[in-house]
Design a protein around this nucleic acid. Structure first.
Lengths: 219, 219
DNA sequence: CTCCTTTTGTTGTATTTCCAACAGACTTAT
DNA sequence: ATAAGTCTGTTGGAAATACAACAAAAGGAG
C-alpha cells in the first residue's frame, strides 16, 4: 500500500487529509485492494454494490449494454480517480453498468457505509471524508445539469450559443478560450463536426461571435 | 414548525428518522425557516451558499440566465422537496442560478456542513441523515447520467430506441408502461412531438416495437 | 347514447443536419 | 527549407427533423 501513497494523496476524496493519516484512515474504512487482469470485470451489471473503487494503477471502463445488447462506454477512469461512487452511495439495488479493467489494474475498494457512518472512535478525518464525497458527487451533478441544459437545444446554432454563453459567464468576460478543438466540441455537443463548423461561420457572419481556433468572443 | 411536521416526515432526507426526532434534529442542525412572497428571490446567482432549502409550502423555481440574458427554467420544486443541495454541498463559489418563489412559500434552510459533520453530542440520527443525503445526490447523479446517455443520440429514432431499451431493462421485461404521453415523451427527448410520432410508427412498421398509448413492447 | 375535447397519427413542405469530398491553413517532422 | 500530416472551413446532395394543418382515435361529460 505504501506503493500507492503518492496516488492516494492526490485523490480528491482525501483532499485536506494529511498523508500520514492515510494508512490509519484506510484501515478504519476496512478498505480492500484487488488486482484485475486486462479485460476482467470489476463490477457486474445486475449486482448490488456498496463499495466504490479507486484506481491505483491501470484503467477501467464503465460500460453499459442496452436491451438489444448494444454496448456503450460511459466513462474511462484512470489512476487516481474514483468510480462507482454514485452506485455505492445510492439505494440502487441493481447495477445498470459493468466496470471492466481496460489494462491490468490495481483497485482499492471502500465501503460507502463505512465512509458515511463515523466510527465509534471518532476519527478526526471522518467528517472531512464525508464532506469531500458530498462535494464530489454534487459537483458532478452540477456539471451534468449544465450539460443537459446545453444539449437540450434543438438546433446546432442554439447548442453553440448555449455553450459559448455558458463559457462566457464562467470566464466573466466576452472573450475566452475553450478547451476543445472542433471535433471535440462537436463530440461534446453531440453534433456533426463540419455542420457545426458551417454554423460557426454563420454565427460569425451574422455578427454574433468572433473566433479564431479555440479563442472566442461574443459580440 | 409543528405545522409542517407532516410535510417534513415525508421528505426523503428524513427517511428512517422518527417523527418525534425531527424537532431536536432540526434544532441540532440550526435550521432556519423563512417566508418568501411570490416573485421573491431565495438565492441569487453569483453568491456562495452553504445552505440548501426544503420547500415547506408553495413552490420555487430554479432559473438560469445566459450571457445574453435569456432565461430558462431548470426546475420547479414543490412542497416536500429539497433544492440547492448540490450547490450547498459542493465547493462551488458562485451560484450559477437564481431560485425564485413562484408562489408565497415557506422554506426551511439547512446548512450542509452542519449536516455532514456529526455534532459533538453524537445524535443518533446524524448518520442516517448523512446516508440519506449521499443517497439523494447519488441517485440524482445516476439519473442525470442515464438521461445524457439517451439524449446524446443524434436521431430521433436512436433516442427513442435508447429510451425504450432503458425502460425495458428497468422493467426487466420486453413489455412495459412509460410515464409519459406523447408530448411529454417528446419534451423528455428534446424532439418535436409529431416527428417523433411518425418515427414511432416507422419503428412499429419496421417490426422493432409495438405500442398502444403508453404501453410498449420491444420485439 | 351523443357531443365535445384532447390526444395521437399522418402528410406535404420547408428547414436543418449529416455525409463525403476536397481545398486551404496550420503544425510537425526531417 | 520541404514534405507529410492534421485541423478547419466549404460545398452539394441525401437524409432527417420541424412545422402546420388536419384527420382519426380516444376519453370525458351530460
Amino acid at each position: 500500500m505504501k506503493k500507492y501513497l503518492d496516488i492516494l494523496k492526490a485523490v480528491n476524496l482525501f483532499e485536506g487529509i494529511e498523508e500520514s493519516d492515510l494508512p490509519p484512515l484506510l484501515s478504519c474504512l476496512s478498505s480492500k485492494q484487488s488486482r484485475y487482469e486486462k479485460g476482467q470485470t470489476v463490477f457486474f451489471s445486475g449486482e448490488s454494490i456498496k463499495q466504490f473503487g479507486i484506481v491505483l494503477s491501470g484503467q477501467v471502463q464503465i460500460v453499459q449494454d442496452d436491451y438489444y445488447g448494444n454496448r456503450s462506454i460511459l466513462a474511462k477512469i484512470d489512476a487516481g480517480n474514483l468510480f462507482g461512487e454514485s452506485f455505492a452511495c445510492s439505494q440502487i439495488k441493481t447495477l445498470p453498468v459493468n466496470v471492466i479493467a481496460t489494462t491490468e489494474s490495481e483497485i482499492l475498494f471502500i465501503d460507502c457505509c463505512k465512509l458515511a457512518v463515523p466510527c465509534t472512535r471518532a476519527c478526526s478525518f471522518h467528517s472531512k471524508l464525508i464532506q469531500n464525497m458530498l462535494n464530489i458527487v454534487s459537483m458532478k451533478n452540477i456539471l451534468l445539469t449544465q450539460k443537459i441544459e446545453i444539449i437540450s437545444k434543438r438546433t446546432t446554432r442554439e447548442k453553440l450559443l448555449a455553450y459559448l454563453s455558458s463559457e462566457a459567464k464562467k470566464a466573466g468576460e466576452a472573450r475566452f478560450y475553450i478547451p476543445f478543438n472542433r471535433q471535440e466540441l462537436a463530440d461534446y455537443l453531440f453534433v456533426e463536426r463540419s455542420a457545426m463548423s458551417a454554423e460557426l461561420s454563420k454565427l460569425k457572419n451574422d455578427g454574433l461571435i468572433n473566433f479564431h481556433k479555440n479563442q472566442f468572443e461574443l459580440l
